[in-house]
């Protein structure tokens, strides 16, 4: 394999993985607070539409990404309101959110299927980007790829290095106890859900602002569900999201390359690989961790909290 092909594959993997990283890291924080939001797909698609629309009208990528962020937040606020104030079941509300998001974006975006935009380009740093091999791999990625990595770090830092992060985790583990010592469970969870929505929105917008300069209904094509799977895969540990997303995106991209190289396996079975590999890796991780008790699962995940006092 020659060098430029290798670099191309890595860039391809980064493009396929980044939407998953954004959506999954947002959902990770949400789940750490004890909330399970299955509406990731719906929030992503709304972000994809809004990012595209704003980029189309303004041509300003900062505004476009910001709009996607706000869009994801806005639609997640429906979920937050219903689950936190009206105490609805989270699984069902999340599914409803996905339905609603897909329908809303398809309807609102009807006028934009004929349009195209200027993509957000990869950066080029003089000198650094020109270093052979290292340059293209480390210093010439898309700015949103770096942002995704930074968000993972930020979530890790927030969860494990700040007081608020500690509180959020304790709420996820035992909301009654956290409430008893005076923490505002609903407020923390509300904020976490909005953050999850914002990240899903940006992840969706990555598809329409970086990967392809088009908008089409259902263009997220199930990536929100994969992101949900990645959170579990990562055992709710932020940095493992990167690992999982790269593995998943990597196998997706590599199976396309394998077809190009004509590796003699049926394409259907090759296409199964990303899903089967995710399960296998998960099992092997568990085997290795077998003797350690797993303390990363938020105990209150999906449970409804209501304070009586």
């Amino acid at each position: 394999m020659n060098e430029s092909l290798f670099i191309n594959i890595i860039i391809g993997i980064s493009i396929a993985s980044t939407p998953l990283i954004f959506a999954a890291i947002g959902e990770l924080l949400v789940e750490r607070s004890g909330v399970l939001n299955l509406g990731v797909e719906g929030m992503m698609i709304v972000g994809a539409l809004l990012g595209f629309v704003v980029q189309f009208h303004t041509g300003n990528p900062f505004l476009a990404v910001f709009a996607a962020l706000l869009g994801g937040m806005a639609i997640s606020s429906i979920f937050a309101f219903l689950t936190q104030f009206l105490l609805t079941n989270q699984v069902a509300t999340g599914l409803a959110l996905t339905l609603f998001g897909l329908g809303f974006s398809a309807f609102a975006g009807r006028g934009y299927t004929e349009e195209t935009i200027v993509l957000i380009k990869a950066i080029h740093i003089p000198v650094l980007s020109d270093i052979p091999f290292i340059g293209p791999l480390v210093f010439s990625m898309n700015p949103l790829v770096y942002l995704a990595f930074f968000m993972v770090y930020l979530v890790w830092w927030f969860l494990f290095k700040t007081k608020q992060g500690l509180i959020l985790r304790s709420i996820g583990d035992n909301h009654d106890a956290a409430h008893a010592i005076g923490h505002n469970v609903v407020r923390y969870r509300f904020m976490a859900i909005l953050f999850g929505g914002a990240m899903a929105g940006v992840g969706g917008a990555f598809l329409s602002l970086v990967q392809v300069p088009i908008w089409g209904e259902d263009m997220t094509a199930g990536r929100g569900w994969i992101a949900l799977g990645l959170v579990v895969f990562a055992s709710w540990l932020p940095f493992r999201i990167i690992l999982g997303a790269i593995l998943f995106g990597g196998i997706t991209v590599l199976q396309l390359h394998a077809q190009g190289f004509d590796i003699r396996i049926s394409a259907q079975y090759l296409s199964m690989l990303p899903y089967l590999a995710t399960i296998l890796i998960l099992v092997s991780l568990r085997i290795r961790l077998k003797n350690k008790t797993n303390r990363t699962v938020p105990n209150c995940l999906g449970r409804i909290f209501h304070s009586t006092s």
Binding site: N8, I9, I11, G12, I15, A16, P19, L207, Q211, V212, I214, G216, M219, T220, A221, R223, T252, V253, L256, H257, G260
Partner: peptide
């Protein structure tokens, strides 16, 4: 699937 079609084109 625009994303996957783009991935394939890139590959």
């Amino acid at each position: 699937d625009p994303g996957k079609e783009a991935d394939a084109a890139n590959a």
